[in-house]
Design a protein around this nucleic acid. Structure first.
Lengths: 146, 146
DNA sequence: CTTTTTTTTGAAAATAGTTTATATTATACA
DNA sequence: TGTATAATATAAACTATTTTCAAAAAAAAG
């Protein structure tokens, strides 16, 4: 059964970073695995409710932070300052629309012009930092707003 | 006299984007021209007061937005969600320390491995967006926190 | 110089996302 | 299965940044 396999997948992802497997955590991860969604805590909460799941807003907040601290999620602030989360199954960059605020993913594998690894290394050598992530932040105008 | 020349410089920068030259605007621009500062509105306000300038906090807020809307400043949110401003005299990327929150600039000219222009064009061609800016967001640990 | 338009200011109000507390419930592991 | 440990839910409270407003001042235009 596919559902059981999926559950084991999430169980091991959580266990892999030393976290317990719980239903809220699994549901949050599943929700964020849908590509190209970058919900705020509130949006995620509403989305899970709409699926018929019972979950508390503070549980959502708490677990988003726990999952982020364990490296399972990417947290960022959008242009309005709202906190947004990204399950980042596949490495990608973000395109921000300056007019409507929409966010689109640009997959790294679709962008052969750019490989972040040499840059990471160059910055580490030059600036003395340890670089964990290198992402592009692209700002512009989306097709709908043009 | 250098001061007069400088004033003309700011006057023309402001006029170039259709804004009036006023003392608060000039002082904000001068303050942000000091490289590698990314103050919040409050920090900028305090910094200007400390220099002996009389300026209102609401004036700072207002003009930061006006200057940003005219493309004279780059606005971004740090990891805590604080709004920060950047005068960007010279093109650069940002290094964010995940531990202490400090922000360091990485000048593009010091990073020959990376040229954003081909990426801009590729994304425009592939995604149908108009791309105004392409910056790297690097997250890691600064030398002090290691 | 005078007029018109735009900007500045200070205080007050709004805003809203996030955190906290604690009682309850679920999970892991022996 | 038992027990310790950790997670969840609910509602209330917080906290500080940002916005608003109207009068006063400054800048541009003629």
């Amino acid at each position: 059964m596919a559902k059981l396999k999926e559950r084991e997948n999430y169980r091991s992802r959580l266990k892999g970073v030393g976290l317990r497997h719980t239903l809220p955590r699994e549901r949050i991860l599943i929700y964020l695995d849908k590509k190209s969604t970058h919900p705020t805590p509130e949006e995620l909460y509403q989305g899970l409710k709409k699926k018929g799941y019972n979950i508390g807003l503070s549980t959502v907040y708490l677990n988003l932070q726990v999952l982020r601290d364990s490296g399972l999620l990417w947290e960022f602030k959008d242009q309005k300052g709202n906190t947004r989360y990204d399950g980042f199954n596949e490495k990608h960059h973000h395109l921000f629309c300056l007019q409507c605020g929409s966010i689109e993913d640009v997959l790294i594998r679709e962008l052969p012009e750019f490989d972040p690894d040499p840059i990471k290394k160059a910055v580490e050598a030059r600036n003395g930092w340890f670089v964990e992530e290198a992402r592009l932040e692209l700002r512009g105008v989306c097709p709908q707003c043009q």
